[in-house]
């Protein structure tokens, strides 16, 4: 399978042992309809972190969320939260709230009724926080949720999730459909509350700029395998974009010493996206004697695109 080949994760162990890990994947495999859709050999999500899950469509992000939340069960391996197996474990789930990409509300219910519903299951449900959030986001608590817009429904489930006082919050593309202003407010509130209550947040999104803003750490999924599990800072330190100018046109082979993610040559001008430590890279580039060298900062989105491109997930390949 492809995912087995993608297990090389050069940076995912760098902080092991320094931070308390709370969500641990150990040789976890999940099959759907007989196909291996998730294969994570080793992943440890630290306590209190905001962990971003990124990946192309069908990479396994939602499956991973459902595994952590206990909706799905692992087919092999072990998935633990706080050292306990999540499978049918109500005590662990009591500390967890899963917000799926398309949240479900009980038919014909209002926010008040949904609150009562969640109170049955989450003993730490914080009614004060709920009232504060409802007042802040101005959601009509007595109206049927079915009459809410898509964005309002997203806000509603996020408010319920935060009010349930979880220690682990699983957000699967949960901000989609929320307008930019409200999105910003929701993010801030969520970050505030998460920081205040030491909530570990696992969030998946295709909006990488958004993740870039508040994630401590990201996991990049590709075809069910984990490409990277790394802090954002470290990721940015490890991937660099340089523009070089030479006196004469150069061939691609000249850059074979580099761990290239992208190499774009236009005559005497070369744009490189390379993995590696800055000092080492700059030394190697100096050996090529370019006329000029300039480094450009990379956003998470760019890194993701280059990484996916390197794996063959590129618009050029799609239309090839």
């Amino acid at each position: 399978m492809q995912c087995t080949a993608l297990r090389a994760k050069p940076w995912n162990m760098e902080t092991k042992g320094m931070v308390r890990r709370v969500i641990v994947f150990d040789q976890v495999k999940k099959f759907l309809d007989g196909n291996l859709v998730l294969d994570i050999a080793d992943l440890q999500i630290p306590k209190g972190s905001i962990y971003g899950l990124i990946g192309a469509n069908g990479a396994g992000k939602s499956t991973m969320m459902r595994l952590i939340s206990g909706v799905y069960t692992v087919d092999s391996g072990l998935l633990t939260v706080d050292g306990e197996n999540i499978t049918d474990n109500a005590a662990v789930k009591e500390k967890m709230f899963f917000v799926p990409d398309d949240p479900y509300f009980l038919p014909q219910t209002t926010m008040e009724e949904m609150t009562e519903f969640y109170q049955c299951y989450y003993p730490d449900f914080d009614t004060v926080l709920y009232e504060q959030l409802m007042a802040s986001f101005e959601l009509p608590s007595k109206n049927k949720i079915s009459s809410y817009s898509k964005g309002m429904r997203r806000q509603a489930i996020l408010l319920l999730a935060l009010a349930s006082n979880p220690k682990y919050l699983l957000l699967d593309e949960s901000f989609d459909g929320v307008d930019p202003v409200m999105r910003q407010r929701l993010r801030r509130v969520m970050i505030d509350i998460a920081a205040d209550k030491e909530i570990t947040v696992v969030i998946s999104s295709h909006n990488l700029r958004e993740l870039d803003e508040f994630c401590d750490r990201v996991g990049v999924l590709y075809h069910g395998g984990l490409l990277y599990d790394i802090t954002l800072d470290r990721l940015k330190e490890e991937v660099h974009k340089y523009q070089l100018a030479f006196s004469e046109p150069v061939a691609k082979e000249a850059f074979s010493r580099f761990r290239l993610l992208s190499c774009d040559i236009t005559g005497k001008f070369v744009t490189l996206v390379i993995r590696g430590e800055r000092q080492v890279l700059e030394r190697k580039i100096g050996d090529l004697k370019p006329l000029a060298v300039e480094e450009f900062p990379l956003s998470l989105e760019e890194i993701f695109i280059y990484e996916m491109g390197a794996k063959g997930y590129d618009y050029k390949d799609i239309f090839a």
Binding site: G70, D88, A90, K93, Y104, Y121
Partner: peptide
């Protein structure tokens, strides 16, 4: 319902209960 099962099976309650 896939949506509903996301809700019910992520609730902190044992399946048997």
């Amino acid at each position: 319902s896939r949506r509903a099962i996301d809700l019910y099976h992520s609730l902190p309650i044992k399946r048997s209960a």
